[in-house]
Design a protein around this nucleic acid. Structure first.
Length: 301
DNA sequence: CACCATGTTCCTTG
DNA sequence: CCAAGGAACATGGT
């Protein structure tokens, strides 16, 4: 369940539940998830340690723990990959089929589950060094963004997935941000006009912010079975469940009418991944005036 | 059976 | 050395 908003909401959910809790026992069912940390070190370091703080960096979860013996602090780095989940459940309940790591905390256990095992739960912070600025940080300003885009010939959609440019966007929110900004996903990054760069910069923050707000107000079933559970970006799944409005404007809506102009949403493949966009609102050569209307309304909220 | 899936890393190519 | 493209990772849903 990755992409920044989902991780942010998860971190806010977990923080009060984990703070102050001590790990009494560690069960590793899939050592692959710990790489490059070895299972032995992992267990030895974390058994007896107490959770102090839980934060987010990009799509990574950062757990700071207090070592039982030494004064040293421990940094546990988590990433959900494509299908990872984290939640607490009563210790008596048997762990899920794809539970990769189980931390016994006493009455409850903290579970890291991952069907496809693409995620990580490791003591190695190496991946963090390659990350670009946080989208809501001051370093991510228009000047920085514009300069970085000027150096790339890649299609803008592909470039937005590059976590060294800015962290947090994934395949869903990259398409959503481009729709809000009224920019074609095929445009080479370096060919964006200054006003497009500004709109995109605003749109990135707007989509992520909107999604965090949505995820914070929706009841989420973190540990339940099925395809949902904290996957609040699935607008259609939520709608099927009853009370939520559709939230995604273009993602996974190929063939449906654009909410802004009525054109049929298109699906194309870029870098072997699906991109969704509106051929009416996101033209390579912008001509009309009816663009970025939705962005305006999102910015106002 | 075929194709698709929220992500990142590694290898190859230019 | 760098940028870009694609395969690989592993499992499940449709």
């Amino acid at each position: 369940m990755p992409e920044l908003p989902e991780v942010e909401v998860l971190v806010r959910h977990l923080a009060p539940l984990l703070k102050g809790k001590t790990i009494r026992d560690v069960t590793v069912r899939r050592a692959k998830i710990l790489q490059p940390t070895h299972e032995r070190d992992f267990k030895q370091t974390l058994t007896g340690a107490t959770f102090l703080e839980i934060k987010r960096r990009g799509k990574y979860l950062l757990f700071t723990l207090q070592s039982p013996r030494k004064r040293e602090r421990i940094l546990l780095v988590g990433h959900l990959g494509m299908s990872g989940r984290m939640y607490l459940q009563p210790s008596a309940k048997p762990a899920a089929k794809h539970a990769a790591v189980i931390f016994a905390l006493g009455k409850f256990s903290f579970i890291y589950e991952d069907t496809r095992y693409f995620g990580r739960l490791t003591l190695d912070p190496g991946a963090l060094a390659r990350l670009g600025p946080e989208p809501f940080a001051a370093e991510f300003n228009e000047e920085y963004f514009s300069r970085a885009l000027r150096q790339s010939v890649q299609p803008i959609k592909v470039k937005l997935l590059d976590q060294s440019l800015v962290v947090g966007l994934g395949n869903i929110y990259a398409s959503e941000a481009l729709f809000l900004a009224g920019i074609s996903p095929r445009t080479a990054a370096q060919n964006l006009k200054p006003n497009q760069v500004r709109r995109l910069w605003q749109a990135i923050r707007a989509v992520l912010e909107e999604a965090i707000r949505f995820g914070s107000t929706v009841p989420l079933d973190w540990a339940g079975a099925g395809t949902r559970n904290g996957l609040f970006y699935y607008g259609r799944a939520e709608q099927a469940s009853g009370s939520y409005e559709e939230r995604l404007r273009v993602y996974d809506r190929a063939g449906q009418a654009c909410i802004q102009c009525g054109s049929a949403i298109k699906r194309i493949v870029q870098s072997a991944r699906s991109t969704f966009y509106c051929p009416g609102c996101q033209r390579a050569k912008p001509s009309g005036a009816s663009r970025a209307k939705v962005l305006e309304t999102v910015l106002v909220k």
